[in-house]
Design a protein around this nucleic acid. Structure first.
Lengths: 247, 247
DNA sequence: TATCGCGGTTGACATGGATCAAGCGAATAC
DNA sequence: GTATTCGCTTGATCCATGTCAACCGCGATA
């Protein structure tokens, strides 16, 4: 339950950092920049913050002034409806950006919560805008990132609108696997940072349904589950499950 | 059914146009620009295209080079899955932008289809980028528009993930009403440009369910429906229906 | 080491929306 | 003007997922 402290300042440790020696630079905002351009980014992205597990990076309603690049860790974003219902709108990992939704109204529209101890780089948005007026590559890449977010959301809409429970979970696992791979981790074995309930919320399912689907996948030899530890045994099988629907 | 002509060129009538005397300028991209800046936009947004009812403005997979501002008419966008399933991802009306999803991969990721005879202004994207490097207001407004799209998509995810059939339809009608109002049309009376099936696809429901929900709303005195003609009789009632869920 | 509590699993049952099917009226084609 | 098709409505039935409930096990805490 969100307390009424929703808008209070949360103390976050702040550290100096730089894009130019970050090993995520090829996944993150600096992608494609020259060394000289990258150093100009360094000046802007100068503050790193630690966010402990279960702490908010920002809350819906708070004033927007920065977007955040995840340097390490894992986040979820969620939206709350007036009547108490909420939904997880995404899970974000290292190299991904948080806070793009806040640009439109100069106010965050969702909560961002760390699912494990994490570090983010704060990117003051007005400075990002002014720098991207000077560096074409940065401007263009930023536009691509925002557009990619829209495409991603369309994918989720597709999933919520047309897929059955098991298809949704298969799509979810394949997506995680693919993103872990892109970060140099095993594509077949990982720990889930989120609970069954959070997965369910994201996929538009109840936690019991998620749990049953995991068990079913295990019975069918597609995965091995033990609590949050997942081993994917049959990627083609999961893909087949996703596309092979029976109308 | 999409034919195998998916990527052929469609002849579209092209007309000269200008933002500075467009009555949608306060809703559309030029929002907030000075007269001088607006005239610089005019040079860029020089081609208007007519798209007839049921014609494609663009198709998924086509190369992306422009975004489009709707000058008049009504569109839907939809995504197709490999296995044939598809989903309507949005309905767009005058003053709204189409094609933002194409920026990320320099290729359109969905189809845009006119639901009535329409006119759009083509905005070459590289020119938009270069102009927005010069005009701060334009740059900032464009970022807001992209961000607003992300927020809108989160709203749809919420709807698909947490709402019941009647809540979804109520939300849909209220959203349309609000957008028509912003365009100076009646907020209480309008023609739906889309079929029950398209509404259902957008809302993650079958057309029969949409039809039944319309009938139910009519019985309850919330709206008057006759085919595509809708009169909203009780806005607070619809809002209550949306938020008053029983857990 | 014992206890507590949360997250997860599993079973039994309920139900909202999907599916299947029939029929009707309005638009479109002939 | 008539035929045909398409979009819509409505009814009967089915099924996937939600709901409710019991229980389990691991990790945290005393």
């Amino acid at each position: 339950m969100p307390s009424n402290t929703a808008f209070q300042e949360i103390p976050l440790a702040v550290i100096k950092t730089a894009c130019s020696n970050c090993n995520l630079r090829e996944l993150c905002l600096p992608m494609g920049l020259s060394d000289e351009e990258m150093h100009r980014l360094d000046d802007m992205v100068s503050t790193r913050k630690r966010v402990k597990r279960s702490e908010h990076l920002y809350r819906a309603g708070q004033e927007f002034d920065s977007i955040y690049a995840i340097r390490s860790g894992f986040f979820k974003t969620d939206v709350l409806l007036e009547d108490g219902r909420d939904q997880v709108t995404g899970f974000q990992m290292a190299g991904e950006l948080l806070g793009l939704d806040g640009i439109s109204a100069e106010r965050h529209t969702c909560n961002a919560i760390a699912l494990e101890d994490s570090e983010v780089c704060a990117i003051p948005f007005t400075r990002l805008e002014s720098l991207s007026r000077e560096i074409f590559t940065l401007q263009h890449h930023f536009h691509k990132v925002m557009s990619r977010e829209i495409v991603r959301d369309h994918g989720v809409m597709m999933l919520l609108g047309t897929m059955r429970a098991e298809e949704r979970l298969a799509a979810f696992l394949l997506n995680l696997s693919q993103r872990f791979t892109a970060r140099g981790f095993s594509h077949a074995e990982f720990y889930l940072r989120m609970t069954r309930e959070e997965i369910g919320s994201y996929l538009g399912l109840k936690l019991e349904t998620v749990s049953r689907a995991f068990s079913r996948f295990q019975e069918d030899g597609l995965i091995a589950v033990q609590q949050k530890h997942i081993r994917i045994l049959d990627i083609p099988g999961l893909k087949r499950l996703m596309t092979h629907h029976t109308p």
